[in-house]
Design a protein around this nucleic acid. Structure first.
Lengths: 336, 336
DNA sequence: GTGAAAGCGCTAACAT
DNA sequence: ATGTTAGCGCTTTCAC
């Protein structure tokens, strides 16, 4: 497993390492036939330059660290794909850290990535890594947050316009004649979930509707959690006519228990989700939800990060993606 | 963004770099108070050792390269999660390459990962990278294939027992009284799809059933492709009573067109999938499928790879995971 | 157009 | 118990 080095190439080609180096970085001033000899040596030796040795001297690794709570969550895997492809286009590779939303793992990941000397990081953090982020910021370490942002840390952020998006969703329900609306919120330790919750509250308030506190439950962003909390709602003595879910996974969980309870969607209960993951159009009835371009979120994050890296200055730009209401079959119009 | 080096730590602590290095690698022979001084310097400087400089001299990066066709495919994201977690436990990080099944990108990824001097690679390849793999093998480069294997390349492989699994699935259909069975095969450039197809054929043959060639269609492993090919089947003049799908995504696509056509599952057409992704239990009716422990596949792959890396010899162990039939609601027993 | 030498941040003998 | 030195594979002055 011994790797060929630039030195062996140089010897075989009968030139010095610096000439080979020049060749590798296609500098102009090399004799044509020297070039050929070097190329020949490279081919014969199947030489692949070590980008880590290169990074060592250039002090850049062209690697970006990606910290995600759960790569199996389709929302994040779509973002990851956008990130990987975009990074690739710009000549960067990505190291993936999956933290299971565990704050300890998040901190470890940050440390790990620093030791790997990544050029920058993109993260969706759950725990309170504020001190750590502040420190990175103070070092001018390129960092961008995605999906959620930790308040008080001024680094670029790519998020959805969650407040407006949630309002749009809830208003749609209200316009369809719903008054008794529940909210299965996401993990409220995330800004994303808090914003969506706030959008729910504002929409209700602005329409003069009262919020039944027993119908506002916090979930994790998962199917299992949606199942658990929707069950709580169905066990209550009153049942809402509609529920706005913190994301499509939660909505999917809600579907399960509603169906199991012998209730019909949307006749008995209407549901609106958020994110428009592939699942949304597949479950029955197809889920009405707020679409969010996850791939773009990843792409924009990489582009923002690379700007930080290459400009050498850190900013605190906020990129906010719009969402759009996708009307499918899970909401009943009560006026009809 | 200038990083603190071991040298600055040494100066601040008033010792030599080698002492700091010893401290970092917790060698036993250091004076207790020297230790304290070093720790203090490290804390004050917020020093994080460069694992790339370290890797440079030790000639090991503790990084593994992961090459996958599509991280948004839940099958692969589950595998990726198993890989990431296991690698993490063993002190390795993972660089992710998403190739979109594009052979060119696969080759590029291999080259990239070599230049990054990863300790080893885990890959699910689509194209014909045989020459490349043979070369890696000749260099004793640690490599393990997952999900599918390229014939003729003797590297460790972690796959499912796809042939047996497919036979089990098809036999289940046959025992339920089905005779006219279609197969929506996966991408036949993969060994996985070929084995499942072969399992289908064998099961049919062993039961003395004939295969209608118009009912054997090749798909990509995606919902969209399942939609397309299932449509072809429904457009034929005869319709099968059951279809065995190459994976759950294809099955999900089939669901869509069957429902759209006004047909009922399983009354009109029974469906069996493969892999048991989360989706399988969520679609209506819940999909009967062959369960495969994807997380374990990732875990086993990492463990096999680390064995290669640490033993310094490459083997060609084949790890074959069993599958199990999960009976849900998508198959009708025609005898009842 | 090409080579020699220094140095990126670290570890590992070899000294003391 | 600690310091000195060489060197990992590369790029980059600075010579010639």
């Amino acid at each position: 497993m011994k790797k060929t080095t630039i030195r062996e190439v140089a010897e075989r080609a009968g030139v010095s390492v610096s000439t080979v180096s020049r060749f590798l970085n296609n500098r102009p001033d090399i004799n044509a036939e020297t070039k050929e000899r070097i190329q020949k040596a490279i081919d014969e030796l199947k030489y692949v330059p070590s980008s880590i040795a290169r990074g060592m001297v250039l002090n850049k690794t062209n690697t970006i660290g990606l910290i995600l709570p759960d790569i199996t969550n389709p929302y994040f895997s779509s973002i990851a794909r956008g990130i990987q492809h975009t990074a690739d286009q710009y000549g960067y590779s990505v190291i993936l850290c999956d933290t299971e939303s565990n704050p300890g793992k998040e901190l470890n990941s940050i440390k790990l990535l620093r030791s790997k000397r990544v050029s920058g990081m993109i993260a969706a953090l759950s725990g309170d890594c504020k001190d750590e982020l502040l420190h990175l910021k103070s070092e001018n370490f390129p960092f961008v947050q995605i999906d959620r942002n930790i308040p008080g840390v001024e680094v670029p952020t790519v998020t959805a316009d969650n407040l407006l998006s949630a309002k749009t969703a809830v208003n749609y329900l209200i316009e369809a004649g719903h008054r008794e609306i529940a909210h299965l919120a996401g993990d409220l330790s995330t800004k994303t979930a808090r914003n969506r919750f706030q959008g729910f509250e504002e929409a209700m308030k602005e329409s003069g509707l009262s919020i039944n506190r027993e119908w506002v439950l916090e979930c994790e962003f998962s199917i299992a959690s949606g199942i658990e909390k929707m069950s709580c709602i169905l066990e209550g003595n009153q049942i809402p006519t509609a529920v706005f879910c913190g994301n499509d996974l939660i909505a999917t969980g809600a579907y399960q228990v509603i169906k199991t309870a012998g209730l019909k969607i949307p006749e008995d209960i209407s549901i609106v989700g958020h994110d428009d993951i592939e699942l949304a159009s597949i479950i029955t009835p197809a889920l009405t939800t707020m679409a969010l371009d996850k791939y773009s979120m990843g792409q924009l994050a990489v582009e923002a990060l690379i700007r930080e890296i290459e400009d050498g200055v850190t900013t605190n730009n906020e990129i906010i993606l719009g969402t759009s209401l996708i009307i499918r079959e899970s909401v009943q119009n009560r006026y009809k």
